[in-house]
Design a protein around this nucleic acid. Sequence first.
DNA 1: TAGATTGTTAATCGATTAACAATC
DNA 2: TAGATTGTTAATCGATTAACAATC
Lengths: 209, 209
Amino acid sequence: MDDKNISQAVIARLPRYYRYLGDLKDKGIERISSQDLSKLMKVTASQIRQDFNNFGGFGQQGYGYNVEYLYNEIAKILGLNEKHNLVIIGAGNLGQALANYMNFERRGFLIKGIFDNNQALCGKEVRGIRVQHIDQLEHFIKENAIDIAVLTIPKDGAVKTAEILAGCDIKAIWNFAHVDLNVPESIVVENVHLSDSLMKLSYGIVNKK
Amino acid sequence: MDDKNISQAVIARLPRYYRYLGDLKDKGIERISSQDLSKLMKVTASQIRQDFNNFGGFGQQGYGYNVEYLYNEIAKILGLNEKHNLVIIGAGNLGQALANYMNFERRGFLIKGIFDNNQALCGKEVRGIRVQHIDQLEHFIKENAIDIAVLTIPKDGAVKTAEILAGCDIKAIWNFAHVDLNVPESIVVENVHLSDSLMKLSYGIVNKK
DNA sequence: TAGATTGTTAATCGATTAACAATC
DNA sequence: TAGATTGTTAATCGATTAACAATC
């Protein structure tokens, strides 16, 4: 897998390929051609082949792609073969929802800690993990080899907390706050702006043809 | 506002413009040039002007853009000046988190009902709204002029429920299930695939330069 | 071998950026 | 009026699609 410069558009499509291949695998399907996959996923076969060839040749002429092999290769590309330790910052509804949504653990994303600045929540257990006060965050991250911080707090707190995280050795921030974080290039930030998504939906309704 | 064919890329940027303009407005800033906004948002001034001009001229040569006016115009484009009635389907953690996250109401998205197929949850109150059994969904949608269904249930249920929704007069589905829904073109679907987002983040960590 | 389907190059399409005339 | 900045056209860049030779 020699990553020269894979475009964001390609990367954004990988999880969807992964999902479809997982379904095919579960159905016991062994091989699939780019053409058949293209019908299933409603994209062009050409795009599928181009996308995969960014990472090397996974197929075989005259045969197509081996489902399980391709599935595993995409997992590797996405880093799903590695374990990631994460903390959730913000033990409100969304934080708890993510903590309880445990398909993530199956993919190697292990919740090691949950933090909140509300003393009343501290000590409470969410999915067997005791909520800690946010003051302990910095120490905890360093001690527990935390890779990923999940930010599920309001935007004011998020900006400040992101600065703290930048000071620790955090690798990535999964940001649910409605604000763009300003952290060094070296930290990966993946935003989930739910209100942006809802506005896009709203646009779709209002401008329906 | 004459919508010929605005590209998805442009639409996806509108909520972000809206957010920044809202912040500027709150700070009492009256006008801004595309150049200043471009520095703030880290995009090109050219893109900003192109984007806005898809919807008509909102600026003035030699002056720039009036913040409040532009803010309101974008709100109109996004349909935020209209009210939307919505139901949440799935009263689990995520459904409750969204129900409780009430900035949505401020933007005109009114939660009218919450549904679940788990009898144990029915009758329980979430944010003052009594959870109903999913059997009542169809009836409720038709009676209460519901525009938007928020799907926060596992994927098997989601596919079936989407079919029911397609039968009602629903306008849009905000889909949090990890599956692509197959509904008529006339229904707007906006997906929030959290696991896809987390995989993108994972890719970012593993392939960091 | 013949048929199928990839990997890859070339063509097309669309989106972003640059440039500048129009105009406030 | 002169300066600033938009609206818009033209140039560039990148992503998608089409085509086909390579090869299993």
